[in-house]
Design a protein around this nucleic acid. Structure first.
Lengths: 98, 98
DNA sequence: GAGATATTTTGATATTTGTCAAAATATCAA
DNA sequence: TTGATATTTTGACAAATATCAAAATATCTC
């Protein structure tokens, strides 16, 4: 799957967007996140995976816990990509689909 | 489906993003668009519908033809929404999911 | 009105997706 | 090493999605 595609797919689910919003306020481990969402830990882990594949979040282990945080370094690129789609501009080079 | 959700869903498909890119260059009728995409007219019409529901494109009829164009008035809102998700900032009001 | 063209809608189908429960893996602490 | 806790992975399943062919709708021209 293309990089773009995994990004947009990741954003297509409301739970995943909410996870990003929560992580904007600060890192959290999987268990803490799990308390905020009314779905099983397994399902949540699945969402984490998609967010990681899209390079939107990163993880580190601390003992038994896995700490999730935004991969802020990617957010600039993401913003550029979205503006490319949405803003006017001369479309000099088409970034996707060719 | 929430406004946001229909927007993100609309963006989740590569064909639909490509349609938006094409329409950025100028309006087109359904038949012309159909020549650019290797899928049936029925499938394409389905994509048009989702883009319309997301308020990303608008249509007008010209005789037998339906002309599709970007709904530019919405793009500012969309950009704001995306920046809300992706950019730093103090998150004063959470726009989604509460 | 009849026929032709443009587009959408419908019905069917295969694939993808989100979900759960249960099993598996990893780490810690005794 | 045994047991407890944290998280992920697996397997199954229901719902959503993209697709096509065919039927339906709308407009035009004759």
């Amino acid at each position: 799957m293309s990089e773009n595609q995994s990004l947009f797919k990741a954003l297509a689910d409301p739970t995943r967007r909410q996870i990003l919003k929560v992580l904007k306020k600060g890192s959290m481990n999987a268990g803490e996140l799990s308390e905020l969402f009314p779905i099983s830990k397994g399902s949540l882990s699945h969402h984490f995976n998609l967010l990681k594949k899209a390079d939107l979040v990163k993880t580190r282990r601390n003992g038994q816990q896995i700490i999730y945080s935004l991969n802020t370094s990617v957010f600039e690129d993401v913003t550029a990509l979205l503006l490319d789609l949405f803003n006017a501009g001369d479309n000099v080079i088409d970034k996707e689909g060719e």
